[in-house]
């Protein structure tokens, strides 16, 4: 089946195997939506149980949250451009935008880790209250996904340099792109329902 190649389609859709892999990844993302939904549900239930510890408005810093959001939004955009260049068979451009994406993702991760360290210094740890337990689990799961994504993309870049732009490497990069955009979607909901809501309360 995978031998049938339809050259009219973009590289990543040219074989049946590739199309099935991409569809399979969409189904995985459906499961990821449900995973994050459970964590948002826990946070929604526990977000006002401060147990005498610091609350949202004591901890959240508007400027830092906006910078994090800007970094991740921009990295989602540069990821899109990377796939756009891939479809023009411009391997150099594709790799360049992918590296930009990773640098922005790394910047986001740096900001998030620094934020967590600051919270712990202010006495806001996972053990402090139900609010902070659910906060760190939700944000930590997202941050872990970003970390795994960065490692994944570094491996992809190495493979792309070794094997060049083939239907297989194109499909892998396209799937990574789906994953990266999905993380941005999750962050939009964290930004809205954790940070902005916490600052309004």
């Amino acid at each position: 089946m995978s031998a049938k190649v339809n050259a009219a389609l973009p590289l990543e859709y040219q074989t049946e195997q590739n199309r099935m892999n991409i569809l399979g990844f969409w189904i995985f993302l459906g499961a990821e939506i449900v995973l994050f939904a459970t964590l948002f549900g826990v946070y929604g239930v526990l977000s006002e149980r401060h147990a005498g510890g610091p609350g949202q408005s004591d901890l959240f810093i508007v400027k830092d949250v906006l910078i994090q959001t800007f970094l991740l939004l921009t990295s989602s955009f540069t990821m899109g451009i990377s796939i756009f260049e891939m479809r023009r068979s411009n391997k150099k451009g594709m790799l360049m935008w992918l590296v930009f994406t990773l640098l922005l993702g790394g910047g986001f991760l740096f900001m998030e880790i620094r934020e967590f360290i600051n919270y712990v210094h202010e006495g806001a740890t996972m053990q402090t209250s139900a609010f902070l337990s659910s906060f760190f689990v939700l944000l930590g799961t997202h941050g872990l996904h970003v970390t795994i994504g960065i490692g994944w993309a570094i491996l992809l870049i190495i493979q792309m340099l070794q094997r060049g732009l083939t239907p297989v490497t194109a499909r892998k990069t396209f799937i990574f792109g789906l994953y990266w955009h999905f993380l941005d979607v999750v962050w939009i909901f964290i930004f809205t329902f954790v940070y902005l809501r916490g600052l309004v309360m």
Partner: peptide, 17 residues
């Protein structure tokens, strides 16, 4: 797939709360 996942997500979050 995505609409169904979003439906399940809303049920989990809104239902839990």
């Amino acid at each position: 797939n995505i609409i169904y996942s979003a439906f399940i997500a809303v049920v989990i979050v809104a239902g839990s709360i």
